[in-house]
Each structure stands twice: as structure tokens, then as C-alpha cells.
Design a protein around this nucleic acid. Sequence first.
DNA 1: ATGAAAGCGCTAACAG
DNA 2: CTGTTAGCGCTTTCAT
Lengths: 363, 363
Amino acid sequence: MANMQDVARLAQVSVSTVSYVLTGARPISAATREKVRAAMAELGYQPHAMARGLASRRSRILGLLLPIDERGLGATETAFVTGAATAASAAGYHLVLSPVDAGDLDGLRQLASQRMLDGVLLMEVQLDDPRVGVLRSAGVPVVLIGRTADTTGLSYVDIDFDRTVHDAVGYLADLGHRRIVYVNHSATAIAEGYGPALRSRDAFATATAGRRIEPVMIPAEDSPGGGRAALASAFDRAPDLTAVLAMNESAVFGILGGLAAHGRTVPDDVSVVSMVTSPQVAELATPALTTMTSPGTAVGRIAVEQLLRHLGAGSTDSAGSTGSTDSAEIHQQLLPCTLEVRGSTGPPPTLTPAPTGRRSAHP
Amino acid sequence: MANMQDVARLAQVSVSTVSYVLTGARPISAATREKVRAAMAELGYQPHAMARGLASRRSRILGLLLPIDERGLGATETAFVTGAATAASAAGYHLVLSPVDAGDLDGLRQLASQRMLDGVLLMEVQLDDPRVGVLRSAGVPVVLIGRTADTTGLSYVDIDFDRTVHDAVGYLADLGHRRIVYVNHSATAIAEGYGPALRSRDAFATATAGRRIEPVMIPAEDSPGGGRAALASAFDRAPDLTAVLAMNESAVFGILGGLAAHGRTVPDDVSVVSMVTSPQVAELATPALTTMTSPGTAVGRIAVEQLLRHLGAGSTDSAGSTGSTDSAEIHQQLLPCTLEVRGSTGPPPTLTPAPTGRRSAHP
DNA sequence: ATGAAAGCGCTAACAG
DNA sequence: CTGTTAGCGCTTTCAT
């Protein structure tokens, strides 16, 4: 396979010239540039990625770190991944998928010290995530997908849970619902500081308080079974519920099944909104689910773009300060989920049989 | 960051000794080995991946090539990916996710020529897939996830559609079903030579012929809507159908919805079996779907393991023969989906109201 | 605007 | 069993 020497020889220039036409790091006369281009084409030359990486100290490889549990990835997470992969590829970067157990800090440190990754995207971020510290002190630029509790000096792209929950509650309340049950992720996830669970919970408390609605919140395992169980206790605590707001894509199908088992029709008796959900999943249900549609691939794409911007500047700390990467370049962005009304929502039952004008029937 | 020189100096040995301790490519006395180990630990030494790769001509990076369409990955494909990532990681390899459009052969050639990938896994393989040739002539070891029509000299790991369909038809037939409708992928997918669609179709034809069942086959777009449409024509062509065999994970939910809309109960009126489906998806339906459960992560894992075995031997052709990689090492494996009976299947309605012993009630 | 040459950090002959 | 050394293919000063 042809290398740079071969190209230089054929084009009758020096290797450095070839290198410079490739990188564009310094002006080359149009004439020589063409000679070189021709030579490259004739030889089918492709720069050797590792050699280039070694010399330039830039691998052009990004890491996507995610703990891969047995349950595998959900549709939303998968969208993050494909979005990131596509964006990286479009920018001429490679994206390596690194399954690192959340607890395996040494493995992470090792990975970071191999100098194979120009930067990393961190998924499944916990509120207090030790991986962030490890990565920073290893001098690897990081962009979080999700975010920690303290985001000082950190770049992240995350879903705007506040606004998502707020909008969902607003939508339901405007429809006339007053008894809204919020089904969260599992108690374990909450205890472990899983950001989305905590943030959406608080947002629900706030949103309901603002509308003088009593907040009923129930945790659920991330599975249809968990959803059924959650629904059972929902009926215990709020027998008169008219709407369910699910923060749990996996549990929501169990909720639907449970509702049917309880003899409740969706949306006539009970409305259901599924948050942070992909259209593909929404369409699986009958009736199709009204959702707060997750930004999907945009999250991964933007995260990559931001990471790339960080790389554009300086990546390694000049003096090994275990502090910030480079405070100037920090980018923090929240993307909202957007309401998509499908078939699982409607006005609450008490209002349904009361058409306009009926209210003043008996003056 | 410490390099090999630093370690050598501290351990009072030569760099090559350090290198050999690391690679184990030649025997080192226990004493020196320990000295070196200690030095490495003290300095927190980590070998530089690119330098190692450049010198050894092995990147320890594997590529996972998959066309990422807008629809994103299904649960089954995602399982392949995570299985591959986990296996690669376990073997000390990195896995890069490369979204290469099926048609972009030049991009592929380029990717292959960068010498960044020691080998690749090819997903979404078409019956006649030009990418295979490109990869082979670039001298990159390949293992297919899926397979082409002609698999001579190729290693692959794929689902055993023949057996899967055979088992599913057998299960349904043993239950007493005679009117079984098979819902395939889209007509487009079939026309494009999408292997799973073609192979399962043929398998269905064979399996039904063996049991003297008339094969009713219907294509469906990969979406719930496609499933509903397919069901409508199913009722046209076989109004008396008692079972649906779905080869289309996305359409099956539409089928379920359509069945309900037609006033049919599952499984009392109609049984539904979803093929090549993950348990997570199966549980989303109510009742939970009886499935031929896809081997999931095992496919990705085995594919990586085989690719790694290929790398163990010789990877690059000694004389640029555009033929086989190394015929001795070829590995072709078919993994069956296993039947998991859940709530969507039962005997056909005509048999249901006839409990055991009723037959001889009036002798 | 171009060239020459010194590495990047490691592996793998080649010598002992 | 260990050391010396020549690259791997490219980038990037330093010269001109």
C-alpha cells in the first residue's frame, strides 16, 4: 500500500509538501498541489491513521462510554448512540463504543491513558459521577450526555426535564385533569441518584404545586411488570385518577395493560402521556401514545459537535492542573421533549359527557 | 505522561525488555519482570495505543459497519451491537461504530485503507453485497453478521431462519392451526434481496408444504401501520385465519391492534407468534407475545470472537490475491431463535370449545 | 512557497 | 535471558 514517500517521489516533491497539501496547515501553490493530488489519486493513497495519530497526537477517535447492562439499550439511548456515530463520521472522526462498568474506575483510567481517545462522551451520568473526575484528571476532554449535580466547568447536553414535565402537566391540566399520577423510574434508580428520575420528580412536584394539584408519585421498575405494579398502587393511592404521566418508557406498556385489566379505557377513562419516548415506541401501543418525544439523535449529534469544538482548542492541560479543561469553551445545553398528541389522551371522564351548553341547562 | 523509556530507566533495563514484559513475546526472568512491573506501577505507565499500533501493525480496533437509516436500530440489531462491543472490550479490543451507507463503496474503501481497523463486522448484509468484495480486496478480515447468497470463503454468524420458521410453524401446527398467515418484511426489502425476508419466506413455504398447509404470505412495511395494512389483506385472502406468524418485529404491534379492531381476541380467536424478537419487546404487548426469541447479544459476541480468531492467524494476503482471506479459518455459524411461549398463542377457536373427553360424550 | 530532518512511542529484528 | 537499533508513516519545527 502506497505511503507518503511514494506519493512524494511520484509528484517530485518532498514528503512534507505532501503532508501539507493533506492537512492544509500551510499554503501550497496550486501547481504543486495538483501534482500531489494527481500522484495520490494514481497511487490510491490513503494516509495511515495510526501514523498520523502518533505524529500529530490526535487520534481522530472519540469514545462513547456507556455502561452496558444486561437489559441493553432503550430506544432513546440507542438514538443517542446513532446520532453520535453519524455526527462523528460526518466530521471525519471515528466513534468507539466503550462498555465500561460504572464502577470500573481503573478500567476507565486505563482507557483514558492509552491516548487513543481525543475526547469522550459520557452516557448514563449519575448526579455524583466519579467517572467525570477520572476523565478530567486524565486530561481527556469530556462532554456529558446527561449531567451531574454540580456542572461547574463541565459541558453537557441533556434533556430538559423541567420543561418537559412542566409542559406535560400543563397539557393534561388544560385538558381538565386534576388527579394525575406520575410514574417514575425505580426506587433503586432514584436512590442511586439517577438524574432523569430525580429531576423529573422535582419538576413534577413544582408543576403540580403551581396548579394546586396534589402530586401523586410512584416509582416503577423499568419493565412492563413494574408498570403494572405501579398502576396497582396508583389505584390504591388515587382511585379517582384520570391521568398517568409516565417517565418510564418500559413501564408504560404495563400501565396500559393494567389499565385494561382494571376495566379502564384509554383515553376515555384515563389519559396516558409517556415522557422521553421515541415515536417508534409510541406507535407500538394501541391507541398510539401521546408522548413528550425525546430529542433522540439530536442529543448525540450536538454532544459530538461540542466535543469537537473542545478539541479545536487546547485539549491537554499545560500544567496538569486537576481543575477545569478550559473554562472558555464550556457548553451546557438542555433540549426539551416536544409534545406529540396521539391517541392516548383526552379530557377526563367527568368532563367528557358534558357537552358545551349543558352547564346552564338548569339555571 | 510516562513512556516506555521512563519505565526502562527506572527499572534499569532496556526499552525492549519493557516491551517484552508487556507483550510476552519472549521470556523474561521473573526478577526483571518484577522490576519492570514495579516501575510501570510507580509511574502509572500505560502503553500508547497509536505508537503500539504503528509499530506492530495492529490497531486492536475492530470496525462494526452498519448502514444507519433514519429509522434507527431495532432491538435485535442493538443487541448485536452491544454484544459485539462487550466481547471486543473483553478481549482488549476497541470497537468502532462506522455508519457507512450501503451504497458508499468509496467511503468504505477509504475506511478500509486507513489501516485503522484490524478487521470488521458487517451488518445488514444483502444477498449480493458489494461491500464484501471491497473489504476483501482491501485485505481486511471480515465476519458477516448475516450472510450473502454465496458464502464461499466467507465467515459469518447469522440467525437460522430455516429452523426458526420450521419450529414456529411446527408449534402452531401442533396446536391445531391450519390457516396460518405469514407476515414478512416489506416488498421493497424482499426486492432488494434482504436475506432474512427471503430466507424466512422460503422456509415458510417449505414448512407449510411439509404439513399440507396452504402458505399465505403477506409483506408489511416495518411499522405498526404496515402491520395493520398487512392484517387487512390477510383477512381478504384468508378470512378464516387462526394464526399469524410475524417476521416483522415492528409490524407485529400493528397486527395486534388490527386484530382487536376486527373484534378478534388474542389468543382465543387468533394466535400470534413474533419471530426474531427480543423478550423486552415481547413483554410490551398485552398479552405478552409468544416469540421465537432472537439470539441477541450472542450473535455479536460470536462474530467478534471469530473475527479475533482470524486475526490470530495471518491477516494480510502475502501476494495480494484478491481471493479468499485464508480459507483454513473460515467459520460459518447459524444460531436458531428459541421458542418462548407467552400469552399470545393457544389452540385455534374451533378446537378450543372442545375440552378433552367431550368427543366421546355421545357414544 | 518548499525542503530537510528530528522525532512521536513503540515493536521486532539483530546481536550478544 | 537481555540490550541495541532500525524503522512503522506521518507531522512539524527549523531552514531557506
